[in-house]
Write a protein that binds this DNA or RNA. Structure first.
Lengths: 169, 169
DNA sequence: GTGATATCTCTGCCGAAGCAGTAACTGTTG
DNA sequence: CAACAGTTACTGCTTCGGCAGAGATATCAC
């Protein structure tokens, strides 16, 4: 039996984590937008560029799972970034289904140039937090995404089981 | 000078609060979806219904600011809920611009009936958290949204100042 | 090796959200 | 009271993300 964090009797919208997450993300995005919009980026584009810069994703599939973004939609975002000569595509030789992505020199320069403004906005937005609070929030969010990640793959596996079953009772 | 939580030199995508918030919200929404989809609700619809149930919003404007949802989009969501006879609209007599919203009896019953399944899913998703951790996360997120809310209105006010200025040096 | 299945990217389509402009209404100011 | 600015809800247009399916490639079973 899982921990009873919420109960039917006292479940309220305003306390619910889901609501708070959505709200916080939306507000924070609004705070960062000016810094990004000035450079012609959306939040999604920015995160993609940062992931490529940090070497966290080398192809579209990893980006999709990391950002939880639809693969079709991602294709189009990459199209835009490629058209602006910020990202390059290249077929992998090992696995020719895969398309390897990387920042072009121009892309890298653009990202690096934009970081200070983003960092400044971010610090401004988080000004009311102590270092300990931000550290705690980051830790809890990281743990949460890890938990949900595990739960998701677990459920996915169970679903595949059920799908390929029907034989053994 | 604001606290320097992040620095240009060590700013990484995977640690950034914005990214974590987006990711966590998306994953959590996926966990709740089955419980909502079974009743024919989207996450947005659900939050709206819950806010109406809790008396947190009595008209569209408050809902928009609370949920940070576009007013045009909200109109259409309310249209759907009204068509399903879950929510009722009524012109306010005090201020005839305003449309007062409330759950119909059927709407209230539907929401109440769905809560247990949602709560169960939520508890399952948060199973890895201790009570203290969830409490801490909720507190930090609430504080964050409060901070960003204040920052937003402050900037809005400043913008209005600048707009109506141009006279005094 | 051949056939079946899975994976990776991309395309077309649809629904939802954001933006801009509009109409109705309120309150304020001269 | 009359002109004006500010609110509130709504409508059309555009953009973006999610879904389903296609095509190419890889992997596994036999």
């Amino acid at each position: 039996m899982p921990t009873q964090h919420y109960r039917t009797e006292n479940y309220l919208a305003r306390n619910s984590v889901g609501y708070l997450l959505k709200r916080a993300h939306s507000q924070l995005a609004d705070q960062l937008e000016p810094a990004l919009e000035a450079r012609g980026f959306t939040f999604t584009q920015w995160v993609i560029l940062m992931h490529l810069r940090d070497g966290l994703a080398l192809n579209a599939r990893v980006l999709c799972t990391q950002l939880r973004h639809d693969s079709g939609a991602l294709t189009r975002v990459i199209d835009q970034l490629e058209a602006r000569d910020l990202v390059s595509r290249e077929r992998s030789r090992k696995d020719r289904r895969e398309v390897q992505l990387q920042l072009t020199p121009a892309g890298r320069a653009t990202v690096e140039a934009a970081i200070p403004a983003v960092v400044e906005r971010l610090n401004l937005a988080l000004g009311g937090f102590s270092a300990a609070e931000l550290e705690a929030l980051t830790r809890l969010l990281t743990k949460l995404t890890g938990m949900l990640e595990a739960l998701g793959t677990e459920q996915g596996a169970a679903q595949r089981e059920a799908h390929s079953a029907g034989s053994q009772p």
